[in-house]
Design a binder for these strands. Structure first.
Lengths: 342, 342
DNA sequence: GAATATCTGATGTACGTTGCCCAAAATTGC
DNA sequence: GCAATTTTGGGCAACGTACATCAGATATTC
């Protein structure tokens, strides 16, 4: 009736508790034949170790560290807040979270800091990855030292990271196109795309996905060359203003980076009936307000709270030797209109 | 450094372990003054009981039961699958889930089954509520017997349920209108609404939210009287087919219940260019396929996995005497197009 | 066949909490 | 002031696992 314990395993395998313990915790000093007997007994009984009891006995704490880009980036500061609040929430569950900030877009600095990590002082790492061989090497070293690493928000697929927690930006771009295309379906014209910079991977991917769908599904809409707004509201306002003045058949705008205040400014004089349909990225105070006022039609978002919790769960699974896929909740591309804002 | 234990509390309160234990577990035989001393010590130390250790000692199991409508309803079968998979996942966390199915839309049958529940055999209940006094009475009886009840998907706000896990259906309806209105903005005409039955609370609420937004924001679209499809594909196909034949200016369809296979059947002969924009509810194998083929434009969804886990967490919190609000993750109204399907 | 080297068993303590028991102390009633 | 009662203390065995130690049992090797 109640689930089997180590005692039951020992009994049916015909060995002592110590031996079961050796097998269970991967200690050596067990003959291959005996090991197989014990494993067979565990399979037969369907034994599952009681993680709560094990952790109690081990006095285990999961010491996890997050490496985030420093600087004023609102999104990353949001992630940091989320890590901190998640950390205090999960303290009773034996999870200890700490944050280390590193210079943004600086692969060597990140690699340096990863190399400085003492594998004894930490049980798992979540890293917003920068693409470079040095970072990959540092991750490999940590993984070999028994410290699992997951990538967060920005992936490094060919590294030895155990898991990636974040959204697929091509999907995000395709979703934006699906929305904007339908919003403008019976109103042919031009569509403007505003990015921060096309040297950032996620922006490139969003643009790519957006164009894939626009070209194949909404041929009556013409996608104009991408404006680079440098995630700066003033730049965005200037460039978009010029574009609006030059093209009176602009029916849609896709803003896939930051600087959305610039979009709002550029359009504040346009009468509502003539205003193009607008789809933007990330829920921030400004985009929320613009959705509520009817200025923006939709916002694509990734739930950072869910991402942080997902990273913690994935790391815990890796530390316990389980599969991070099973532990992780799907993190999807979210669509928000005025009425379903959280 | 490490967190305080009962021993620390006992020491700083100047009482024995037994007394702390009595306070902690709400047993009597403790003078008011002593109780206050113990509480003060716990506050001072910031004591938090180690739930894992407590449960280990108590050999506690959380036996939870889900009451779901039976029948071919794909959404409810999805919930059931989710409960079952969640149940096996959470077995190591001392949670035992079971499912009982009851005739759909049948308040008396549900009440009957709730009355038959033995409060000793179960620690908590999650119920997809049907609106009726008998159900409310049955819930009240269970709560009084010490078995917390949460409502799932469909609420019964005036009952004694400890929590509701599900989406705000007015918001869902408003969101659907925001989408459908934008999809049809430049193509005036009629919009059809298909519900399962207007005696189910969630359907009524969706319809309400839908109309609020349609009337105030999209006056060029005319919302037709609701079709009741009884969540049955055949009925839906018949009634919708008749409607399509009678009105050639139908530009949008909002299907807020189940039976979406009927919508697909009714529209399979309509050429794609003339097809109305379609927004439906719930991701099921059928709606997914229709989104992928381009038959449906968008689906409003509630994440049933998240809901089931939310219900489990809420029940566990209620059983432990904690607040279900704190335990619950926000469950939002999700929007899916073809490209951001999970 | 002895000397190792490698396995295995038995036993005990610990983790933080629960829950039971019995004795000691404090409080109450008369 | 003594008995009856309530409140408290101290002890201890669980819960399922981890980890250490030491003694004993097999296997290898020469």
């Amino acid at each position: 009736m109640s689930r089997p314990t180590v005692h039951d395993v020992a009994r049916t395998a015909g060995v002592s508790l110590s031996t079961v313990d050796r097998v269970l915790n991967g200690r050596d000093g067990v003959r291959a034949a005996t090991l197989e007997r014990v494993n067979a007994a565990m399979r037969e009984l369907g034994y599952q170790r009681d993680v709560a009891a094990a952790n109690l006995s081990k006095r285990r704490r999961y010491r996890l560290r997050f490496f985030l880009p420093e600087g004023p980036n609102a999104f990353m500061r949001g992630v940091q807040d989320e890590v901190e609040s998640c950390g205090s929430e999960m303290w009773p569950e034996r999870v200890e979270l700490s944050v280390e900030t590193v210079p943004p877009f600086d692969a060597e600095a990140l690699a340096e800091r990863l190399r400085a990590v003492d594998p004894e002082a930490v049980d798992g790492l979540a890293v917003v990855a920068t693409d470079s061989a040095a970072v990959m090497a540092a991750i490999a070293r940590l993984v070999e030292a028994g410290v699992p690493v997951v990538t967060l928000v920005s992936d490094l697929p060919s590294s030895r990271r155990g898991y990636f927690v974040g959204i697929d930006n091509v999907v995000a771009g395709r979703t934006a196109a699906g929305l904007l295309g339908r919003f403008c379906r019976f109103r042919p014209g031009k569509v403007a795309v505003i990015a921060g910079s096309m040297v950032v991977r996620d922006h490139v991917e969003r643009r790519l996905g957006f164009e894939q769908v626009m070209r194949s599904e909404f041929p009556t809409l013409e996608v104009m060359p991408t404006i680079e707004g440098l995630d700066d509201a003033d730049v965005v306002a200037d460039k978009l203003g010029a574009l609006l003045a030059a093209h009176d058949d602009l029916v849609g705008i896709y803003s896939l980076g930051a600087g959305n205040r610039g979009v709002i400014r550029a359009l504040s004089d346009t009468p509502e009936a003539e205003r193009p349909a607008i789809v933007v990225h990330e829920l921030t105070p400004h985009t929320r307000e613009a959705l509520l006022s009817g200025m923006f039609d939709a916002a694509i978002n990734q739930d950072i709270g869910r991402e942080v919790r997902g990273a913690v769960r994935a790391l815990r699974a890796l530390i316990d030797g389980a599969s991070p896929e099973a532990a992780g909740e799907r993190i999807g591309v979210e669509v928000f209109l005025r009425d379903n804002l959280p």
